[in-house]
Lab assay of single mutants.
Amino acid sequence: MVDYIVEYDYDAVHDDELTIRVGEIIRNVKKLQEEGWLEGELNGRRGMFPDNFVKEIKR
């Protein structure tokens, strides 16, 4: 799994989504079957977030 950095703020709409803020690092990200969404861990919580608000961290 890979990590992503947040490029744009996003406020969660549903309980299974993450609220993300610019500059945060989302860890252990995986792609979901639902197009346009990823799932990852942030601040001890796992949830979904839109893939166009983040950028993969290349290592």
Results as ranks from 00 to 15, higher is better:
residue 1 M to H: 08
residue 1 M to E: 07
residue 1 M to I: 15
residue 1 M to Q: 07
residue 1 M to V: 10
residue 1 M to N: 05
residue 1 M to L: 14
residue 1 M to S: 15
residue 2 V to N: 15
residue 2 V to S: 13
residue 2 V to E: 13
residue 2 V to F: 14
residue 3 D to Q: 09
residue 3 D to I: 04
residue 3 D to S: 12
residue 3 D to N: 14
residue 3 D to L: 07
residue 3 D to W: 06
residue 4 Y to V: 12
residue 4 Y to C: 09
residue 4 Y to F: 11
residue 4 Y to D: 01
residue 4 Y to I: 01
residue 4 Y to Q: 02
residue 4 Y to S: 04
residue 4 Y to L: 04
residue 4 Y to P: 01
residue 4 Y to T: 10
residue 4 Y to E: 02
residue 4 Y to K: 04
residue 5 I to Q: 14
residue 5 I to F: 08
residue 5 I to M: 13
residue 5 I to G: 02
residue 5 I to S: 06
residue 6 V to I: 01
residue 6 V to G: 05
residue 6 V to D: 00
residue 6 V to S: 06
residue 6 V to R: 01
residue 7 E to W: 05
residue 7 E to L: 13
residue 7 E to P: 02
residue 7 E to M: 11
residue 8 Y to R: 15
residue 8 Y to F: 15
residue 8 Y to N: 05
residue 8 Y to K: 15
residue 8 Y to V: 10
residue 8 Y to A: 13
residue 8 Y to T: 15
residue 8 Y to C: 15
residue 9 D to L: 00
residue 9 D to I: 01
residue 9 D to G: 08
residue 10 Y to K: 06
residue 10 Y to W: 13
residue 10 Y to H: 07
residue 10 Y to Q: 00
residue 11 D to N: 11
residue 11 D to V: 13
residue 12 A to D: 01
residue 12 A to P: 03
residue 12 A to S: 10
residue 12 A to Y: 00
residue 12 A to K: 08
residue 12 A to Q: 06
residue 12 A to G: 12
residue 13 V to F: 06
residue 13 V to N: 09
residue 13 V to A: 14
residue 13 V to R: 10
residue 13 V to P: 02
residue 13 V to D: 10
residue 13 V to W: 09
residue 13 V to I: 05
residue 14 H to E: 13
residue 14 H to I: 05
residue 14 H to K: 15
residue 14 H to M: 10
residue 14 H to N: 15
residue 14 H to G: 13
residue 14 H to L: 08
residue 15 D to V: 12
residue 15 D to W: 04
residue 15 D to S: 11
residue 15 D to I: 05
residue 15 D to M: 06
residue 15 D to N: 12
residue 16 D to Y: 14
residue 16 D to L: 10
residue 16 D to P: 05
residue 16 D to S: 13
residue 17 E to D: 10
residue 18 L to K: 02
residue 18 L to A: 02
residue 18 L to Y: 01
residue 18 L to S: 03
residue 18 L to R: 04
residue 19 T to S: 13
residue 19 T to L: 02
residue 19 T to R: 03
residue 19 T to D: 06
residue 19 T to V: 03
residue 20 I to C: 07
residue 20 I to D: 00
residue 20 I to Q: 01
residue 20 I to R: 02
residue 20 I to S: 02
residue 20 I to G: 01
residue 21 R to L: 06
residue 21 R to W: 04
residue 21 R to H: 09
residue 21 R to T: 03
residue 21 R to G: 01
residue 21 R to N: 01
residue 21 R to M: 02
residue 22 V to R: 11
residue 22 V to I: 07
residue 22 V to Y: 07
residue 22 V to W: 02
residue 22 V to A: 15
residue 22 V to E: 15
residue 22 V to K: 15
residue 22 V to L: 05
residue 23 G to Y: 04
residue 23 G to R: 01
residue 23 G to M: 00
residue 23 G to P: 00
residue 23 G to K: 05
residue 23 G to N: 03
residue 23 G to Q: 03
residue 23 G to S: 03
residue 24 E to D: 15
residue 24 E to V: 00
residue 24 E to N: 05
residue 24 E to R: 02
residue 24 E to L: 02
residue 24 E to C: 03
residue 24 E to W: 02
residue 25 I to K: 12
residue 25 I to E: 04
residue 25 I to G: 02
residue 25 I to M: 07
residue 25 I to P: 01
residue 26 I to R: 01
residue 26 I to L: 11
residue 26 I to G: 00
residue 26 I to W: 02
residue 26 I to S: 02
residue 27 R to I: 10
residue 27 R to T: 13
residue 27 R to N: 09
residue 27 R to F: 09
residue 27 R to H: 15
residue 27 R to M: 10
residue 27 R to V: 11
residue 28 N to A: 05
residue 28 N to G: 13
residue 28 N to I: 00
residue 28 N to C: 08
residue 28 N to P: 01
residue 28 N to F: 04
residue 28 N to M: 01
residue 28 N to H: 08
residue 29 V to W: 00
residue 29 V to I: 05
residue 29 V to K: 00
residue 29 V to C: 09
residue 29 V to E: 08
residue 29 V to S: 05
residue 29 V to G: 07
residue 30 K to T: 12
residue 30 K to L: 09
residue 30 K to Y: 13
residue 30 K to G: 10
residue 30 K to R: 12
residue 31 K to F: 02
residue 31 K to E: 12
residue 31 K to T: 14
residue 31 K to C: 15
residue 31 K to L: 08
residue 31 K to Q: 12
residue 31 K to D: 05
residue 32 L to D: 08
residue 32 L to W: 07
residue 32 L to M: 10
residue 32 L to S: 13
residue 33 Q to Y: 08
residue 33 Q to C: 09
residue 33 Q to F: 09
residue 33 Q to G: 14
residue 33 Q to S: 14
residue 33 Q to E: 13
residue 33 Q to V: 06
residue 34 E to K: 15
residue 34 E to T: 13
residue 35 E to F: 10
residue 35 E to I: 12
residue 35 E to C: 10
residue 35 E to H: 12
residue 35 E to M: 09
residue 35 E to Y: 08
residue 35 E to Q: 12
residue 36 G to T: 03
residue 36 G to N: 09
residue 36 G to Q: 04
residue 36 G to L: 00
residue 36 G to W: 04
residue 36 G to P: 10
residue 36 G to E: 03
residue 36 G to V: 02
residue 37 W to A: 01
residue 37 W to T: 06
residue 37 W to R: 07
residue 37 W to H: 04
residue 37 W to L: 07
residue 37 W to S: 07
residue 38 L to F: 11
residue 38 L to W: 07
residue 38 L to T: 04
residue 38 L to G: 00
residue 38 L to E: 01
residue 39 E to Q: 08
residue 39 E to H: 08
residue 39 E to F: 05
residue 39 E to K: 07
residue 40 G to M: 03
residue 40 G to D: 01
residue 40 G to R: 01
residue 40 G to Y: 00
residue 40 G to E: 00
residue 40 G to T: 00
residue 40 G to K: 04
residue 40 G to P: 00
residue 41 E to P: 01
residue 41 E to L: 04
residue 41 E to A: 05
residue 41 E to R: 06
residue 41 E to I: 09
residue 41 E to M: 06
residue 41 E to D: 06
residue 41 E to V: 04
residue 42 L to R: 03
residue 42 L to C: 13
residue 42 L to K: 11
residue 42 L to Y: 01
residue 42 L to Q: 06
residue 42 L to V: 10
residue 43 N to G: 12
residue 43 N to D: 04
residue 43 N to P: 03
residue 43 N to A: 09
residue 43 N to W: 03
residue 43 N to I: 03
residue 44 G to D: 05
residue 44 G to L: 04
residue 44 G to K: 01
residue 44 G to R: 10
residue 45 R to F: 08
residue 45 R to Q: 13
residue 45 R to M: 07
residue 45 R to P: 00
residue 45 R to I: 09
residue 45 R to E: 13
residue 46 R to N: 04
residue 46 R to W: 05
residue 48 M to G: 06
residue 48 M to E: 03
residue 48 M to P: 04
residue 48 M to H: 07
residue 48 M to R: 15
residue 48 M to L: 12
residue 48 M to N: 14
residue 48 M to V: 12
residue 48 M to I: 15
residue 49 F to A: 04
residue 49 F to S: 02
residue 49 F to L: 08
residue 50 P to V: 00
residue 50 P to R: 15
residue 50 P to A: 04
residue 50 P to K: 09
residue 50 P to L: 05
residue 50 P to F: 03
residue 50 P to Q: 05
residue 51 D to W: 05
residue 51 D to Y: 11
residue 51 D to G: 12
residue 51 D to N: 15
residue 51 D to Q: 06
residue 51 D to K: 12
residue 52 N to S: 15
residue 52 N to D: 08
residue 52 N to A: 11
residue 52 N to W: 09
residue 52 N to E: 07
residue 52 N to R: 14
residue 53 F to N: 12
residue 53 F to M: 12
residue 53 F to E: 10
residue 53 F to R: 13
residue 53 F to V: 14
residue 53 F to K: 10
residue 54 V to F: 02
residue 54 V to G: 11
residue 54 V to M: 05
residue 54 V to N: 05
residue 55 K to N: 07
residue 55 K to G: 08
residue 55 K to E: 04
residue 55 K to H: 07
residue 56 E to R: 10
residue 56 E to G: 09
residue 56 E to M: 10
residue 57 I to M: 08
residue 57 I to P: 06
residue 57 I to W: 09
residue 57 I to V: 13
residue 58 K to F: 15
residue 58 K to G: 13
residue 58 K to A: 13
residue 58 K to M: 10
residue 58 K to E: 13
residue 59 R to M: 12
residue 59 R to V: 07
residue 59 R to W: 10
residue 59 R to H: 15
residue 59 R to T: 13
residue 59 R to C: 14
